[in-house]
Nucleic acid binder design. Structure first.
Lengths: 216, 216
DNA sequence: ATCGAGAGCAAGTAGTTACTTGCTTTCATT
DNA sequence: AATGAAAGCAAGTAACTACTTGCTCTCGAT
């Protein structure tokens, strides 16, 4: 019944277990992810699981934390904005892909947040890095005169990240709500936001005050 | 150990069980919602649960479906738009409150959608009624000349509903991402959207084409 | 007064779960 | 060739789970 009996020994067993745990947890939640099923999925004896990670909770937690840490924040959003459209598009595409790829995991983790507070790290990572970095960037955009000076930056940030989040969570399960493809989604969301904040080519710093006055 | 021993008899037992099942399910998910815990929460004997609903699955499903059906669609959004700002604000407030009130239930149901496809009704109800009605209304707004004629209606609808959804799901767990209060959230989201779509007082029908031409 | 529906209670069943123990096998290093 | 670390295997434990059975108690309608 074992698949490729020796392959499991050459590949690191811990790695196999972590991968399997992540997959099963995303599919079935914490209680549904039984040690038997995880071990089977990993092609590893169930006892090895306990010898390596001590407990089911230890394994799953390590697997989830590690997965979320894969979204490094090699900041796509530069300190000095140059091209708002392409920069925002890069950020949106990047996070949209990540959220969509891990949607099942995120849903499971969200539901489990209450009973396993340690799991909150998933949301923390996503919430903090995603939303706060974006907001800071929008503030910079604003200050540099790339958009209307009187926009609601906090709301604008939440709008883009919220739209992307809701799409990533809902598209698979409610296709009729997303009549456009996942490929063009980021472009359209960014285009909408750019228009909403009155994005334009930068106004030279000395003219910013005039531009603001003109808009008001 | 029973609380108010006779009160449970006068109040309908089914009602008690349905309420308890909903609460426990929202807290612990399907597998975590044990019949023992539900019965205890309802102040009812565990056997009664099975006599009334046949199985745990039957009970929880009935409880969840009933809960979601409480969001009647007494359409807040009129067929003929008169005041976009107040109409959109009413819609937003209504759904934002509903989503926030049931955030734990929604999270649990989302996670369980895979293993219990029957649970998809929650999302169906929310997705279909919320998003599609909103989009249709925005289309009407557009046609009546209340906003820019060339806006991306599909995206605009997803933006508002997505923003509201993400806020309702994330506010409790990531307060730092929502620096404004839940009371003013709908107002600010709607204000942002109105500005994004170039909302204005209606243009008399005979002038719509002119208005469009002028904008382009 | 009788009766029957419905709820409580105690006990039990069969299956699952996380986790342990004792032993054997494999395999790279010495 | 010998050793030791790591993995497999079979079996077991104690707790929990959904669900059942058989009985008693209560109470409102006849």
């Amino acid at each position: 019944m074992r698949v490729s009996p020796r392959a499991t020994l050459t590949m690191d067993v811990r790695e196999q277990l972590l991968e399997a745990a992540l997959k099963v947890f995303a599919e079935a939640g914490f209680r549904g992810a039984t040690t038997r099923r995880i071990a089977q999925e990993a092609g590893v004896n169930e006892v090895t699981l306990f010898r390596q990670f001590g407990s089911k909770e230890g394994l799953i937690l390590e697997a989830v934390v590690r997965a979320v840490e894969r979204l490094q924040d090699e900041d796509v959003l530069p300190q000095v904005p140059l091209d708002p459209e392409s920069e925002l598009l890069a950020w949106t595409q990047r996070h949209y892909d990540f959220l969509r790829q891990h949607s099942r995991l995120i849903k499971a983790a969200m539901a489990e947040t209450q009973t396993h507070p340690d799991m909150a790290c998933v949301g923390d990572r996503l919430g903090q890095n995603i939303k706060l970095n974006l907001r800071a960037y929008l503030t910079r955009l604003c200050a540099a005169g790339y958009c209307d000076a009187d926009i609601d930056v906090e709301v604008a940030g939440n709008v883009l990240s919220g739209t992307v989040f809701a799409d990533a969570m809902g598209r698979d399960v409610h296709p009729q709500c997303y009549p456009f493809s996942a490929e063009e989604a980021p472009r359209r969301y960014v285009a909408f936001l750019l228009r909403a904040i009155g994005a334009r080519q930068a106004v030279p710093p000395e003219n910013v005050s005039e531009a603001v006055a003109h808009h008001a």
